[in-house]
Design a protein around this nucleic acid. Structure first.
Lengths: 210, 210
DNA sequence: CTCCATTCACCCTCATTGGGTGAAACCATT
DNA sequence: AATGGTTTCACCCAATGAGGGTGAATGGAG
């Protein structure tokens, strides 16, 4: 099989044992080739554009610049590269920052070897591989609380407020009087125990009422 | 193997052929059992609470109440049920509405049979099974545009505005003068070609600048 | 050394916000 | 038929905020 058609992989991971483990795995899978590996972003930065990988396996806990912060820099160096996060961490914040920064997938390190290969393949095909638990967290981030103290109308109005619209504009768009909107807002503030737009939006978002 | 330990599956799907195809597949897999199937939510509504399934395979294009709108109603009838959407549609809006309404996973109908079984298993284990392409769309929904006309500071300030904070409060929290915030906002409005908070937030969100 | 980003200043007018209090109309459920 | 919650609207008040015009100094990256 021609080496030229292999999927080109670069690994950025500070643990040498893990790095070599993945390299061994990938190089022994036909169709995949590790073209370079680095222990930090700083080490990778100089040469990785020349390596021109298709996929980067990226650790989040790196010495120096973190993997998360490295994502946009790597994308700038190699715009079309697919970045797969490979980490032990399953914290919401880390996951969402990684995905927000441009990662195409997020795997935990207990992922079986065959799934890592499958993920590299999947990412090349336009997929978004995630470990099962990560995927559930991502899905849950779209879901609302099922125990909001707000009524349907109150929720609707708070959503509109969260888009920055004035009460007057909300009234017009919902075909109700400005006084009615004010009345709903007073009730919303009371239920959420806040005294301002900003606090109402924050409380509602934190609790997934909107 | 005891039937009592089987994963109990209900199918809601209007196409009888597909319904029977899935039933056959699932019933012939040990550990899984189809306990009921219905052609619409209305038909399911009366009996499904008594069926008490672990997982519901749900079509989105149903006669009467759509699958999407059926999700919260089904969750209300059987709070702990896991709902797996099974559909031909891959439109963003449908996907995000389904997940927002409480679906635990989203598969397209070209999903191979063994993956459907795997998804049912995964959802029971707290995972969030998605077809590859769906997963990528979900991940992309977290990502920002890489070609925003806004500077870092402008983006930061527009984000703060989108939380409902006043200019004064933003100034205080960023340790800058109110005049500076106003100045940034003027520039933001000019760049986005808008004349209000609400329009700035909408434009920025639509274009993924924030 | 020149952009661009970031910062601040002073001018102006009109709109918006938060809060108090009360009440009619409509709904669904008992 | 009566109750309770939701949604609707009314009128009061003081204080704050928003949007726009114009100009300008500082500071860092290319």
């Amino acid at each position: 099989m021609s080496r030229d058609l292999d999927i080109r992989v670069t690994i950025i991971e500070d643990d040498e044992t893990i790095r070599e483990g993945y390299s061994y795995l990938i190089n022994n899978t036909s169709g995949y080739k590790v073209i370079s590996s680095y222990p930090s972003f700083e080490d990778a930065a100089k040469k990785i554009a020349h390596d021109d990988p298709d996929v980067i396996l990226l650790d989040v806990e790196l010495p120096g610049i973190s993997g998360i912060d490295a994502i946009p820099k790597l994308k700038k160096l190699i715009p079309d590269v697919h970045i797969l996060i490979l980490t032990v961490y399953e914290q919401d914040l880390l996951i969402f920052r990684a995905l927000g920064n441009g990662a195409a997938g997020y795997l935990t390190k207990n992922t079986p070897h065959e799934k890592i290969i499958a993920a590299i393949h999947e990412v090349m095909e336009g997929g978004g591989p995630m470990s099962a638990h990560i995927a559930r967290m991502v899905i849950q981030s779209f879901q609302r609380s099922d125990s909001s103290p707000l009524t349907r109308r109150e929720t609707e109005i708070l959503e509109q407020i969260a888009t920055g619209k004035s009460r007057k504009r909300i009234a017009e768009e919902l075909f109700i009087d400005l006084e009615t909107v004010k009345s709903h807002i007073k009730n919303i503030y009371q239920k959420l125990n806040v005294h301002s737009k900003a606090d109402a939006i924050k409380t509602a978002r934190d609790n997934k009422f909107i």
